[in-house]
Design a binder for these strands. Structure first.
Lengths: 336, 336
DNA sequence: CCGATTCGTCGAATCGGTTCGACCGAGGGA
DNA sequence: TCCCTCGGTCGAACCGATTCGACGAATCGG
């Protein structure tokens, strides 16, 4: 079932079969039809490896994800899904590569073995050696997220700094004076995870701008940690009346801790965050939050990558989104 | 940076480089060292396409997932993560293929273009044309889930029928007489989604065995639907004192509906389900549930697939797991 | 001391496509 | 009528690896 077999049965040469399929040279209607009939009958498809070898491209992109051991957040899942979706629309396949920890062989294989035409990297750190590796390799790539100095790369990202600042202003406008930031996990922040640092910076700046009293804490990415963290926060700072958070996975725990402390949301306490819309709406009560357009970002990342593959020397482009805050049910005036 | 370049710089023939790398023929220590030095210096990796073409295998497996539009449940995410993880351990790459809906081109490409050595298929229906397609193609594959008559395939699956029956018996043992099943979405069940049907069958059988009164409903996979569904259920059947569920995504909504109706869990009402442990523990209160070992199942699926790739004519194997119910905080004696 | 092994290496064939140069015949312009 | 162009097709080269057969040199047993 290779191209030679098709050629033999159609009574033409292999090149003619190739031209009939790719259309890169004219083939007479009768010949073409005969070839297609044979192909259809035998269910022939060109061998992807042979084609990739000759053409020098694989029609596959790599998607570098955090290692499987760290559970994907809802937002990350949204990115993965939208990248896969957008790639499928462009008739590209997606090769998954967990990176970090023990799986660096996988990353190496993807980057170095000419298995993919380009790469999308998620979960970028301020200093990220995967990015350095990719830049050195010359392979086209796009970050979902960006390094501290992203001038030499193409990327899409969420403007956490602006968003958290906006959250703080929203709370300040409502009269809150003592607010807390529930950030991502201490490990992530310590490892230089961009959103954690940028959220912190935005929080500090806005708190200073509005003359508020702010306290920032880190919190692991699950409901139990969110609860523990909030209980601790309320015990240490009983004066708090609001929380801003970028940790969607912890939000349910934050709710429970507040309920157990006797505080009712939003009457006694306000919460505002940055989260996937799906997630914000499914909390109870629905979370007032900046809705991250994960689907759009993933699609844009694929777009950018296609551009770089088509012209690797083109100027780098990027997209920084700061979606507006959707008012739902968790923020209200500061209690008197 | 191909093997010829390495050969030239090391002053040997291309075949010798190949033998030095694969070890399939002896190479003298000095020569080998010289070759490895050059390779190291130039950062050479064999071209994956060329190797695949000659060897006839790609060292890649396909993972067929539901289309991106339908959000992955926590359990499905666990499967994906564990498959990727297990594949990485075996030095295999994973090619993602959304199937269903508009993405059948992607599935076709994966199955037919000799891009992968084997395939793992998720979300299998009782009658599943992707399975039929794979059987016809002769490509090794393993299902996570199984068709109605899975004799001709290898698979791993969760024994929903037994598990839900076990849940019902657990509730009956606690004295509950009126119980409901909250199943997966009506669309899934209508489409012949196996777990939905098998859960229903196990529920009906156990309810009959114990002489209970049971009511089964379908429910979309999110918290809002869970709440609406439960409210409806309580309105129609106020005599209910317990719910068994296979719909982990709806559980939070079930909780809220019960709380809003004034029922306290587990004092007034019991809930028991089948869910990923991570998910059950993060609910509040933690859900008494059969903990699905998604990680183990994914790893087993990869194992089975490796076996089939190694020997496609070997007898089919399968694994049906029925993990015990972990008692947490949501079941108690039926109210008097 | 000679024939048979064994070791280390090389050259050439091969995998299944794409693509380039060339060829033949028909049609069109001068 | 002659020449050129162009449509349609073929054969051969090529992409970058693996692998088989062969061959020279060293080793070994008799």
């Amino acid at each position: 079932m290779n191209i030679g077999e098709i050629a033999k049965r159609a009574g033409v040469s292999r090149s003619t079969v190739s031209y009939a399929l790719t259309g890169r040279r004219p083939v007479s209607p009768e010949t073409k039809q005969r070839i297609l009939a044979v192909i259809d009958e035998l269910g022939y498809r060109p061998n992807a490896a042979a084609r990739a070898l000759k053409e020098g491209r694989t029609r596959t992109i790599g998607l570098v994800i955090p290692p499987a051991s760290t559970r994907l957040t809802d937002m990350q899942l949204g990115f993965v899904a939208s990248v896969v979706d957008a790639a499928a629309r462009a008739d590209l396949d997606v090769l998954l590569s967990p990176s970090g920890g023990e799986h660096d062989r996988s990353f190496e294989r993807v980057v170095t073995g000419q298995r993919v035409d380009g790469v999308i990297v998620m979960e970028i750190r301020l200093e990220d050696d995967r990015v350095a590796r990719l830049m050195a390799s010359g392979l086209p790539f796009v970050g979902i997220g960006r390094t501290r100095d992203p001038a030499g790369m193409s990327w899409v990202d969420i403007d956490y700094e602006t968003l958290i600042a906006r959250c703080v202003h929203h709370l300040a406008d409502l009269g809150h004076r003592d607010i807390a930031l529930v950030n991502r996990s201490a490990e992530l922040v310590a490892a230089g995870y961009g959103p954690g640092h940028r959220a912190r910076a935005g929080f500090d700046r806005a708190v200073a701008d509005r003359g508020l009293r702010g306290v920032a804490v880190c919190c692991a990415d699950d409901a139990q940690a969110g609860q523990a963290c909030t209980e601790h926060l309320l015990a240490e700072h009983p004066e708090l009346t609001a929380i801003a958070t970028v940790n969607e996975a912890a939000a349910a725990g934050v709710y429970h801790a507040l309920a157990r402390s006797g505080r009712e949301v939003p009457r006694d306490f306000s919460i505002v965050g940055v989260a996937a819309r799906h997630w914000a709406e499914n909390l109870h009560p629905p979370l007032t939050a900046a809705d991250v357009p994960a689907v759009e970002l993933g699609a844009q990342a694929v777009d950018l990558l296609l551009g770089r593959i088509a012209d690797p020397s083109a100027a780098h482009r990027h997209l920084l989104v700061a979606p507006p805050i959707s008012l739902r049910a968790t923020t209200g005036p500061a209690p008197a």
